[in-house]
């Protein structure tokens, strides 16, 4: 098959109805194509860096603000419960563990799904309907490589970086939150946090964020690339990219929990 093949997908089903299974199959094919293309030479470094900048660096402010608020609120909200058990001293440890293990990766991924997924769906969607993707194809540039591979690789690599930074910011915010009612020095807080954190808190969470990033990229690109004609389709691509990517994140999270459990990393 030549490159034109995946374009047939949406065109063939003129009936308009594509059920969930069919879409899952298409997405799996799309993912398979990604892996085939990502390895074949002619790497679009320029565009990869540009996408990394847009999807990584440009997402940082939003992620940072969310992480800060999250860390602060989690701390303030958990305090009464821990107080009831006389365990306020466990506050830093508790917040650190929940942020690192779960909340940091998932919230960051969801923010990215909203921000990156939607813009990808819309951008590629409008490129699709205005034939820009076709134009790339006929000018001898593989649009899948140029548009999809760079985007997916960039989110796969950038979301983990965002997650690490978000974790750090959330824990720092937690330090501020702890000090609303208490005076805990930074060294003590630091000590309490690191006393509680172990490798199996950090590493599985870190690894799963690669998958979150990958899912965001793949879903965003898939939705954009498979936009049905018309501007209405662009809106639909954009919003369903967010919905599907968010769902995928939760499902991956579930799978990650099971895997870490099976591997005995909990």
């Amino acid at each position: 098959m030549n490159r034109a093949a995946p374009y047939l997908g949406p065109m063939v089903s003129t009936t308009g109805y594509r059920d969930l299974i069919e879409e899952a199959g298409d997405m799996a094919r799309f993912t398979g194509r990604f892996f085939r293309e990502v390895l074949r030479p002619r790497y679009e470094w320029e565009e990869l860096l540009r996408q990394a900048f847009i999807n990584g660096y440009r997402s940082l402010p939003l992620v940072a603000v969310t992480a800060f608020i999250m860390g602060l609120v989690l701390t303030v909200q958990s305090r009464p419960t821990l107080e009831r058990f006389g365990a306020e001293s466990m506050l830093p440890a508790m917040v650190a563990i929940s942020v690192v293990r779960e909340i940091g990766p998932v919230i960051t991924a969801l923010i990215c799904a909203g921000k990156i997924g939607s813009s990808m769906g819309a951008e590629l969607g409008s490129m699709k309907v205005t034939e820009q993707i076709d134009a790339m194809e006929v000018s001898g540039t593989n649009p899948f490589k140029y548009l999809v591979v760079t985007r997916v690789v960039s989110t796969t690599l950038m979301v983990p970086v965002l997650v690490v930074l978000a974790d750090a910011i959330a824990i720092w915010a937690s330090y501020i939150g702890v000090n609303f009612k208490d005076t805990v020095s930074w060294p003590l807080f630091h000590q309490q946090v690191f006393d509680s954190l172990i490798f199996s808190d950090l590493l599985p969470a870190f690894f799963k964020s690669f998958f979150f990033g990958f899912a965001i990229g793949i879903v965003g690109c898939y939705k954009g690339f498979h936009t049905e004609r018309g501007t209405e389709g662009v809106g639909r691509a954009s919003h369903s990219a967010v919905v599907v990517a968010s769902l995928m994140i939760f499902m991956l999270d579930l799978v990650a929990v099971q895997i870490t459990d099976i591997l005995g990393l909990n």
Partner: peptide, 17 residues
């Protein structure tokens, strides 16, 4: 400057990790 910022961003994340 984009590349510089991106580099900074990645280095910061990696350093924290």
């Amino acid at each position: 400057s984009q590349r510089f910022k991106l580099g900074l961003f990645v280095v910061a994340g990696t350093a924290v990790l």
